[in-house]
Simulated assay, not measured.
Amino acid sequence: MARLTRAEQQERTRAAVLVAARQEFAEFGYAEAKVDRIAERAELTRGAVYSNFTGKRALYLAVLVDAVERARDAAVPPAGPPASAGQALGSFARAWLERLPLLGDTPGSGHLQVRSLSGVLGTGPARAALAELVRFEALLLALALGPRPAAAPSPGAVRRAGLALTLLHGAAAVAENAPGTGDPFDLARAAEHLAGTALGDDPEPPHLPYVAPATTAEDPWTPPGGLHDEITGRPVDLGGDGVVVVLGTGRLSAAEDAVRAAEPDDEVTVVVVTGDPAETGRLARLRIVDLAACLRRTFPPDRLPRVHVVLDDTGTVPAALGHPPTDTAETAVRIHDGLVAARATGRGAGYAAARHPSRAPGA
């Protein structure tokens, strides 16, 4: 039998650790789980576990990410688009609510099923990232619910999508501690009604007039390859005309201003980066991939959000732009004819790059 390569052996070890960790967390829950027991279950040393995962929190998030990636890849799109925004929200809610734990589940397995983060996010940056992710999820859901041809959602539409997500996460929080609470059919009907809730549109955010304009450029651009959109699963080519916005996990809410400022025919790509791929990066992957799984079950491929979302765990895109991948990263470029036609960095960078004329200098 041929000997395994180092990479193959590491992948086999990682897979064994994930299986053992899933069993441990299902039995004991996050708080009571022990890394030593996970190593014993996998018939590995404690060091072998830590060579693949930085700690229990990273391992727990990896177990959840593995589960949501499987769910997303198995998602079957509907035969046609929902007839209305209300019907779409109801269908989205039904797909989302399938995760609610049942009465017979153990507490640990119920927590895994509901993707529970209770007691997991102990740091300020992780909590801040979660708050930004919730706002980013609302933007993506609002984009899917919007009319075609695709248009930037109004602030009211994003708030309605946020209300629906709050309803669903609230139901999950209750069911986590009291399985069987809440009728999924009632919750789905409630989500349908939220589509017609009149919230009104907020005025333009007061900081936007003070955002510095993007700097005109004419720079060669060789984008990293091998990227794909987490929502559709399709390859992403950052060399085409459009706007590329690089946002750290602590600045994802800035995507809304960039999307709203973009021209109707712009390809907008949000590249999510972090200085902590093991934990904050996995948190971002967990939330975005989980949302994508429900979106794929609700909307046909041509009705998924028009914004591309790239999870850049290794920071290749910001490196190509000359910036580090930090949790507070905020930089953007406008691409035209294979060149960087405009650059912006700092607060409002995506908005500034999107507002810059799409024609190349001198065109």
Rank of each mutant, 00 (worst) to 15 (best):
A195V: 10
A131E: 09
P147M: 07
D183Q: 08
S116A: 15
G200E: 02
V158P: 01
T166E: 12
A175R: 07
P149M: 00
P149D: 06
E98W: 01
P184Q: 01
F92R: 06
A217N: 12
L194H: 07
Q113I: 01
F92L: 00
L208W: 02
A142M: 11
R115Y: 13
L168I: 04
T181K: 08
R99Y: 01
L145I: 03
G182Y: 06
E176C: 06
A171F: 06
A173P: 12
L168S: 00
R94Q: 15
G119Y: 13
T197D: 04
D202A: 03
P179Y: 09
P147E: 12
S118E: 11
A171H: 05
L199N: 09
L130G: 08
L208P: 13
G196Q: 12
S118A: 15
E132L: 06
A131G: 12
V120M: 13
V120F: 12
A172N: 10
A164R: 09
L121S: 13
A214K: 04
P149R: 00
R99C: 08
L199H: 10
V158Y: 00
P206M: 05
T197K: 05
G180F: 09
A217I: 14
R160M: 10
L163C: 11
S109T: 01
A171W: 11
P147S: 03
A171G: 13
P220T: 15
L140F: 06
P107W: 06
P153C: 05
L143N: 03
G170F: 12
A175F: 12
A131Y: 10
A129V: 03
P213I: 07
G108C: 11
G196E: 13
G108F: 03
